[in-house]
Amino acid sequence: MKSVRRRESNWTAYAFLTPWLIGFFCLTLGPMLGSLYLSLTQYNLLSPPQWIGTENYRQIFTQDGTFTASLLLTFKYVFLSVPLRLIFALAIALALNKGIRALGIYRTVYYIPSLLGGSVAIAIVWRQIFDGSGALNQFLSWFGIQGPAWISHPDYIVYTIVSLSTWQFGSAMVIFLAGLKQVPADLYEASQIDGAGKVKQFFRITLPMLSPVLFFNLVMSIINSFQAFTPAYVIGDGRGGPLDATMFYTLYLYLKGFSFFDMGYASALAWIMLVIIGAFTALVFLTSRFWVFYGDQEGR
């Protein structure tokens, strides 16, 4: 009886997975394996690739200063921007969850920045704010502070990029809102009857109930931040400058592949990134046992 049921389950499951499987085998797997192969070749995009074994990897790890610098810069960006984004998104989502008029308008206001994506307009607007004589420094000058050129000095430009990505916290906020929507209201009622305060409610109910969504936002923010390309491209000069202050890992990889005609090398960089992101994701998945609570788990 059980085995029949199980077989049926296999069938149904694969039926549900069919579109994804087709996509995976026809569109994704080939190019992925292709890039893995290319990472073992010298490939300038325009002539056929030449097999060189692990030479690209050797060069990356032993001779490439830009690789190390861009990796460190990317780590810095990830560790700054992921928590900032998530904290902002969660705080605003909680504030805009309920119990206040004109919620829709407010939510939209906070989401609009994310609508702009990486548009050209952003680059202009950001310059108006963070330039040496921009809005931010004019504001600071009221307090007698002489601010630096946030958008063009190599020491500060990364913070401008972090502020851009934090500013666009909208999608994480929306996901939190959707998650909050799923928290059954009767849980709050019950705890209110028990006399629990707002803070206690947050830690006892909201956070655990929200943990699958928080987990999702964390994983996705990590993956996306490691691959951050657009903010560096939009704010910087598109070539990693000034100096290498905006040389994010993915930007470096893109330049190597498309501008410097070294797609084999770029592919090797990409697979190194995949391993790094994979390790971080695995780490988050492993720790999730301790802090993520699913409705499908026993004994909740």
Binding site: T28, Q227, Y254, A266, S267, A270, L274
Partner: peptide, 11 residues
């Protein structure tokens, strides 16, 4: 997890 730019050409 694989940066988009390296699968672009094969795709």
């Amino acid at each position: 997890m694989l940066p988009y730019h390296v699968v672009l050409v094969p795709q």
